[in-house]
Structure formats: structure tokens, C-alpha cells
Design a protein around this nucleic acid. Sequence first.
DNA 1: AGTCCACAGGAAGGGCAGGCGA
DNA 2: TCGCCTGCCCTTCCTGTGGACT
Length: 399
Amino acid sequence: MAQTSLQKIFSGYLKNGNLFLSKDPLSPSYDPSTITHRDSQMEVVASILAPCLRNEKPSNTFVYGKTGTGKTLCVRHVVGELAKTAAENSVQIKAVFINCKMKKIADTEYRVLAQLCKEFGYNVPATGLPTNRLYEIFYESLDSQKQNVLLVLDEIDALVSKGGDNILYNLTRINQDLAQAKLTLIGVTNDLSFSENLDPRVKSSLNEEEIMFPPYNALELRDILSERARMSFVAGSVKEGVIQKCAALAAQEHGDARRALDLLRVAGEIAERNGEQHLDESHVDKAQEKINVDRILETVRTQPRQSQAILWAAVTNEAATTTGQMYERYKEVCKKRGLETLGPRRASDLMSELGMLGILSVRTTSKGRHGRTKQISLMVSKHTQEGIKEMLKKDFYFE
DNA sequence: AGTCCACAGGAAGGGCAGGCGA
DNA sequence: TCGCCTGCCCTTCCTGTGGACT
């Protein structure tokens, strides 16, 4: 690209970039000074954790709620305020946040313990030490001074599904061996049936308190969006109806505030890129389409090569087909692309998985004399199909 | 009612990669 | 570093299934 056209884009961006004041309030990691429509949940969290201020141990707590219902935000906020009050009153509180979904960092017993040791100033090797030794190091560092430690395990379901509930059992029993410190666990999860599969002993000690975060409704989402929009956009640039539309669309998706904020941000980016001074409902439509396409493309991008081959067989032959026909097409694709071909049993499973992801429509039907099979067709819009085709061709060399 | 098709999908086990622990 | 363990992906083998056809 010529130097001058790049400069044109940059100077145009500077000139037209007067729609946003700041994108930060629309980002999922933004911590607002007040959290809208979560007062009662925050009060419950605060009252559970308050005993810390008198050097007593609060109850272990479980926080449930679907994606984008403000669980992590509220817990962080309350713990932050608690730490402030504690500092003002010279009470020793330490809060540790661990996201158990962080691959290769905190998704196994060993890794979580290694993270904890690190939090207390002990660097342990990423692998090699017996887990028992890690527990010892953690116990020692934890108990080295009189303090109340709040351990927030975000996405705790990921840890248990991968590494079992051994670590939770040990952590909930730890207070018996501590002389000075006290440890309180706060588990956060969007898996509503999470505790059902836990060891009963872990369940009873971890579930001393339970807080449920219900999904936001459209009105609540509207309030949240209005507030964030006021901070993010230039006054008067967001036309009427935009906020309502974003709220309504996100309310349909189980009240996910993150999704609503995403919609508003992407709509703003689209308007800004077009050099427009106002944000209207048509930008929200485009944002919705873009987010949907991006989500599907991202899903496709991260699929194993064999699933991509099946998908390529589907997007290049759009008519509905059966498992057997699809398998034949898939074999041809593999041959052309130089991939190894999976057996029909495994391929059938991959087709079902693509169905679960909402990319293929997979329906089991019986054709009587002609057998029982799955009817398979594409479930995504023409536009998305083209996007998938383009990406598989460009990034993964399908042809 | 019995047959038959074209699979569906469960169970068992092999191979492999990566993590754990000494 | 190396053997053991575990989880995952995959194959093989098998039984089960809905409905058109006989």
C-alpha cells in the first residue's frame, strides 16, 4: 500500500474519530465506580465477607450465574472495597484472584498451587515438584503472618473438570492446620449444576453460602448501556433507539451484558470507520451480523483440521446430504488436501459436533428401506458461508 | 409381521502427547 | 531425565433403530 493512502487512513481516523470519547467503558475488563442493578447481590457478598474486618473467617462462598451477569465484576468490586476499609483500619487482608480457565497457567491442581505460591512470594518451577511439596510451601507462606486471605477462584468449573476436586478438598480443610492465617474460598462459575458433581464433603464445606446472579432483563441492560454510552460516546452522537435495540438483542441471549456492550462498541466502530458522526439502529444491525460472523469464523478457525475438512466438504456442496454422502465428499477433500482420512465412525462424531456448534444442521431421520441416517445441511447465512470458504481457503489452503 | 437398509452410537482398546513425580 | 500415568483422539467391533418395502 502506498505511503500516501496509509496516511490518508490515519489522518481520516484522527479527523473522524470524534464519535468515541473512550472505548474503555465498553470493554469487559472495565471496572465502573458503581455497578448498576446488582446492589442486592453486592450487599450479600459484602455481608458474607465483612467478618474479615474483625479478623474472623468469613464463610466459603459460591457465586453462580450465566455469562455476562456481572459475577466477577461484583466480587472484584466488593473485595476491592473491603481491602480498602481493612487498610484504613489496619486489618490484614489479602485477596488473591485466580482465573482457572487460563490455559497452562491455572487449570490444574499443580498450576493453581504454583500460582498461589507465587502470590505469596515463592517462585516454584512450572513442573517437577511433588504436589505435596507445593502444598507445604503454600501452607508455610500463608501461615507466616496473621492475615485473612480471600481466594477467588473464577471459572472454578474449568479447574474441577480438568483436575478433579482434590485441590478444593485440600483447600477447604487447610484452616485446621493454620495457626495464624485464615483462608476463605470464593468460587465463581457459570455452570449452574457445578456443585452437583462435587464430592459431598467438598460440597458441604465450600457451599457454606451461595449467591445466584440472575440474568439482566432488557430494562436493566438499557440502564447499564446508557450509563456506559454516556462515558464512551460524544454527547448527542448516539441516536434514539440504539441503546434499546442493543439491550433487546442481548436480553434475547440470556441477558448477557458483555454481549450488549460488545454490540454497542462494534456498532460504534462501524459508524466511526464509515466516517459518520452519529450512531443509529442500522449500525447495530450491522454489528449484530459482524459479531455473529466473527464468532462463527473464530469457532471454525480453532477447529481441528479434520473438522475443517468436513466443513469444507459442506460449504463447497451446499445441498443437504446424508452422513454417507458427506463422508465420501470429505474423503475426496482429504485426498486433494493431502490429509489423512478418519474412519466413518469418528467422522460421524465430528459432523455431530459441528451440529452442536450451530454451524451444520444435523437431524437424524429414517428413510425406511433406504436406511437410517443424519440429514446434514449448512445452518449459517450465505454471507457467513462465503466468509468460512474464504478463510479456509486463505488460512488453511483448502481448495 | 418380518425383512432390510444405512447408518447411529456405545464399548473397548490402541497410540500418542503431555504432565507428574522421583 | 525418564518411567509412569492420564486424557484425548481414533479405530474396530458390535448392537440397536425407524420406517419403507415385501
